[in-house]
Design a protein around this nucleic acid. Structure first.
Lengths: 115, 115
DNA sequence: ATCGTCGATCGTCGACGAACGATGGAGGAG
DNA sequence: CTCCTCCATCGTTCGTCGACGATCGACGAT
């Protein structure tokens, strides 16, 4: 399973959604803030978020490779993060690339800071 | 049940733990951060936190009066917030006074901001 | 066209969370 | 002392979460 055997085009390709920081960030309402907080209320999802933030790798399989969890479990964690608006996923051929949603994360930060 | 019939000493008494901002705030580890996030991952607990932050009232009964929840439910929410380190409670005669734990909240803010 | 890979979804199981009423103990008021 | 108030805790019920293996559809490669 050496990764070097696979030609992946640009090896360290970034998530193709450029980090476009929105000019204005609205504060989330309580339910949204609670949902976001609940989404990161699990160590595995914090680890995933950190992983996506550090590496720009964004592929589901890479996340699975880094965590001691089954593929289906990781996929569900990613789904939860996506539905909370903290992560963005887009289909890239046979695989799905995930990246941190800067707007969602900013909203979470702002909401927590405003507590 | 008019509240004016009850003499509560200082009506707007502050929580007797003075807000002593610690000079240095350490970043929580992932498990602690996840636990804190999980604690605020419920709208009622966000409402409680806001309530404790705005008013300095700090009494369990006051929180119960403000929320459409049973006393036991509110008490459990307060317990969860307390065990997460976000809220501090101390016994004051027959009642219990709660207030936001500034250190815990600062740790949460810092942990989220460092994501 | 066929195959292999990647990843989302389904079904299941045990564990945990949220809400409530009831109970009980601590502590002031009479 | 005796009551009454305040609140934590217990026990219960029901819903959701977390994890897994199995399955299925989409897509590229051969």
């Amino acid at each position: 399973m050496s990764r070097s055997s696979r030609d992946r085009g640009a090896d360290e390709r970034e998530c193709r959604t450029p980090p476009e920081p929105s000019p204005v960030i609205e504060l989330p309402d309580d339910d949204t803030l609670a949902a976001m907080a609940k989404a990161i209320g699990h160590p595995a999802r914090i680890a995933i978020l950190r992983l996506l933030a550090r590496r720009e790798t964004c592929a589901t399989g890479d996340v699975v490779a880094e965590l001691p969890l089954a593929q289906s479990t990781v996929s569900e964690h990613l789904r939860i993060l996506r539905e909370a608006g903290l992560v963005r996923g887009e289909i890239d051929g046979p695989r799905t690339r995930y990246c941190v949603d800067p707007d969602g994360l900013a909203a979470l930060r702002a909401g927590i800071a405003a507590l």
